[in-house]
């Protein structure tokens, strides 16, 4: 993987906006943003209603993903360009999700919706019509998805990268600061996890930093990329951003995203938790 395989800029999008084999997909935390306006010819995927099982906490099945992409008019050989708000948090999550189900050519629009807006580029309200397809998904590629037992095994042995804000890492906040703080689970982080906030990988306008800056970021935080790496955040969307940086931009192969993240780990009974700004020992504890 490299930057050119996984990332496009706005000029690329403008040049390919009418190419029927290129599908623009908007994925936002604010799922209503698309209804107001979006990049011309973009379809919407709702990270919650389209990508989460409606009953249990898990992703939609392979068959449901096939039905979703078929209905959206996406073919297996289409180039899918995903973009969204929040510095591409949920767009990165969707990118990882498309890879999980084996889509070959998926890329992110660098900077997402924010840079597009800050550059005063055109947005439209018209919803495009795409002919339904017969999409075939692969079984989940769990080599890029971590579960709680993988995380417990990694404490003190492999890389755990906590990409939340420093205050969430230390346990001073339970959620990003634009959300109410009323969650009931424990605060803190997984013992031995390094704190590398996702935001350090992005510029103010939401674009990704250069490969050299990104390498220096993780090396400076003491993350040995020769080891397996599990990235996590609160619900797995910001850590998908970091997974994208490590796996797609820097080409590190053994990286997984723990989508259960802190809302699962912080609610588990009997697991170690570390408070404060230090990575801590495997046993965890107060700061």
């Amino acid at each position: 993987m490299s930057r050119t395989d996984s990332l496009v800029d706005a000029d690329w999008v403008v040049a390919h906006i009418d190419d029927p084999k290129v599908v623009l997909v908007e994925v936002d935390e604010d799922t209503a943003a698309y209804e107001i306006n979006h990049i011309r010819n973009a379809v919407r995927i709702d990270w919650q209603s389209d990508l989460q099982d409606p009953v249990r906490r898990d992703f939609v099945s392979q068959q449901q993903f096939e039905a979703l992409l078929s209905a959206k008019g996406i073919s297996n050989d289409d180039t899918v360009i995903i973009y969204g708000g929040n510095n591409n948090w949920f767009a990165s999550y969707a990118f990882w999700y498309f890879k999980l189900y084996g889509h070959q050519d998926v890329r992110l629009l660098d900077g997402g919706r924010k840079k597009w807006e800050l550059d005063a580029r055109d947005l439209v309200a018209e919803v495009p019509t795409r002919t339904a397809t017969t999409y075939k998904a692969s079984a989940q590629d769990t080599s890029i998805r971590a579960f709680r037992d993988d995380v417990l095994r990694a404490i003190g042995t492999q890389n755990l990268v906590d990409v939340r804000s420093p205050d969430e890492y230390a346990g001073r906040l339970l959620a990003p600061a634009h959300l109410p703080q009323e969650q009931s689970q424990r605060a803190g982080h997984i013992p031995t996890a390094a704190s590398v906030p996702w935001s350090k990988a992005a510029n103010d306008d939401g674009t990704f930093k250069s490969d050299d800056e990104l390498k220096a970021l993780y090396e400076g935080a003491g993350v040995d990329l020769g080891k397996d790496t599990i990235a996590y955040c609160r619900i797995g969307e910001r850590s998908a951003h970091t997974w994208f940086v490590l796996h797609e931009l820097l080409g590190v192969s053994n990286v997984t995203n723990y989508d259960g993240s802190w809302t699962e780990y912080g609610a588990l009974v009997g697991v170690p938790v570390q408070l404060g700004d230090i990575a801590g020992t495997p046993e965890g504890g107060a700061a």
Binding site: N86, N87, S165, P166, D167, P176, A177, H178, P197, S199, K200
Partner: peptide
Amino acid sequence: DGTGEFTAE
């Protein structure tokens, strides 16, 4: 935050 680190947007 107080160190200039991004927290939310």
